[in-house]
Design a binder for these strands. Structure first.
Lengths: 339, 339
DNA sequence: CTGAAAGCGCTTACAG
DNA sequence: CTGAAAGCGCTTACAG
């Protein structure tokens, strides 16, 4: 059995209540008593029991981290550790712990989140993704539990606290850049259609085309669901069009890596034959040959602010829904060429 | 206030004790009562309070994950998410949650671990690294808390439960491979000297050299501490030796990426001028040009087994210390050439 | 400045 | 098969 507050009390010759007050550094306890009690705690190796303390305090001092269900993908993507690092830093600063969702399917995750929330296992949640019709977000919104989303909520974004990049502008900037290099036939390889980030980037792509007077060509867009297991084929089809694109934007650097591999198999050279731009600036993108031009979205800051926002809500439930926009910027490297 | 066991009891017309038994699916409760209670729970949206349940059960149903303190590095390395995925899968299978350490310095981590353990916040711990003189491991060993290490403990490995690869053999295999290609001047770029994995790989490197009758040449080894901030210089010095190496083994793919970049700056070509082998087979290593030959250490399995081992210990404290060796294999790609 | 008592929400011998 | 009671380890009004 571990040392309890009672044991310490006995040894220090005071009541358990007093020990508790010393732990909380209550100013009404005399200096002498505090010292006596602290000595006893030290001597006996006392540590407060979280469960007990949290039970009466009705809080847990921990933040729940919920990630998307395509676990393999989520984990492989360097986005996850980097956003976690941001969250971790901020949480640690406020002495909050981190509790991770482990579910592998959408149902499991939903159940976990409900259990976390209702079971008071966490004081708030950071939702690491945003998709179109997400029961988890619906639940959270109704639950009253403080939460923040990394990514723009698909609807009612005015009532949800979130942090994101301006993905529409980002995508536009990429198109502008390519157009500036003389490209007009620009393809877009997007992510899953129900992720808001994909939708926003696609949107920016379309808007930018329009602004430049370039007609939108459906055959120039490829979507993740459409190509499950047929990535190679989709890229081949794209490049075998009568008028193939001269540039390809991919929604994530990881996808860019894949695309580049396929292009190689087809003996299409980057950037000589086709220019490529990625998104998210993963650590390794600079090491590719040619180094990948990409949009740096400040993943760490995304995490930092998300944690900051939940913590703020936990402290004061009345703060209104907020949006924090984290700046991002296009990094020119060697994967694009001027036409 | 959330719905408690009392509320449910009242509505179902039974005692709180009975509700508790229904939750535990106690076989001595009649079918009828169970149904009645379950209906009430459903209707009222009852969820058990973790804190309360854990307080009386004296367990937390969660595993603590402790990672090394060089937070930035740890997070950037794809090792972390992958090992976490393995742990997560196994933990979820047994309905265990995951609690993450957030400390950034060695002291913070130590304090956190002690608090986790003494505060009964976790039932067991997975230590994601193993270093030479680690207070955390010392503490854990004395604490009685079940734990498993990813990596070989530096000493008393017979009394600690751990999972690792046979790093000595792995390094030997790499040397054998390079010797087989005709290399005799083989350099080794190692990691921090106090990480056991670095020590073991260096050891294997030396042993293999000896077996092939190749004298060990100190100038052919580079260590992480020695080069902090001077990576570029170290590599240049290495290649400007009167008799430079024809092959370089790096202790991690990430390091290999860096080394390749430096070599490029020196206009030294891989694999034409020098062959390179990495370790850990990160997702992107196959995408490099040339694709990186490396040792795949089955990171996911490392995590899976580590979780399995702690869970086993939690269930039965008397199981003896165990070692699980996860197989690894050299993956030949394009970064080495035959002399 | 400090203590006795009640209570956080649950579980589990002990009775019946 | 079910209930009343004690207790897990802590905190916090309420008294004094």
């Amino acid at each position: 059995m571990a040392v309890t507050i009672k044991d310490v009390a006995k040894r220090a010759g005071v009541s358990p209540a007093t020990v508790s007050r010393v732990i909380a550094d209550n100013p009404r306890i005399s200096k002498g008593t505090k010292e006596k009690v602290r000595e006893a705690m030290e001597f006996m190796g006392y540590y407060p029991n979280f469960q007990a303390r949290n039970l009466v305090a009705q809080k847990s001092q921990t933040l729940g981290i919920v990630m998307e269900n395509s676990a393999v993908l989520a984990f492989q993507n360097p986005f996850f550790p980097e956003v976690l690092r941001g969250i971790s830093t901020r949480a640690h600063g406020s002495k909050y712990g981190l509790y991770l969702s482990t579910g592998a399917t959408a149902e499991e995750i939903y159940d976990e989140v409900v259990a976390m929330a209702q079971g008071k296992r966490v004081d708030g949640i950071v939702l690491l993704y945003s998709k179109v019709a997400d029961p988890v977000m619906e639940y959270l919104r109704g639950s009253g539990l403080p939460f923040a989303v990394v990514g723009r909520p698909y609807k009612d974004s005015g009532t949800v606290t979130y942090v994101d990049n301006d993905n529409v502008s980002n995508a536009k900037e990429v198109v502008d850049y390519l157009v500036g290099l003389g490209h007009r036939r620009i393809a877009f390889v997007g992510g899953a259609r129900d992720f808001v980030v994909s939708i926003d980037r696609m949107q920016g792509y379309k808007e930018a085309l329009a602004e430049h007077g370039i007609p939108f060509e459906p055959a120039y867009t490829v979507n993740e669901e459409a190509i499950q297991g047929a990535e190679r084929d989709s890229i081949r089809k794209l490049m075998e069009l009568d008028v193939p694109p001269t540039a390809i934007i991919t929604h994530d650097d990881l996808v860019a890596y894949e695309v580049i591999s396929y292009l190689e198999e087809l003996e299409i050279k980057v950037p000589d034959d086709v220019s490529i731009v990625g998104f998210n600036n993963h650590t390794l993108s600079g090491h590719l040959k040619p180094p990948l031009s990409t949009v740096d979205i400040s993943i760490y800051d995304l995490g930092l602010h998300a944690a900051e926002l939940v913590l703020e809500k936990i402290l004061d439930e009345t703060v209104p829904a907020k949006r924090v926009v984290v700046p991002s910027r296009l990094i020119e490297r060697g994967s694009c060429r001027r036409l």
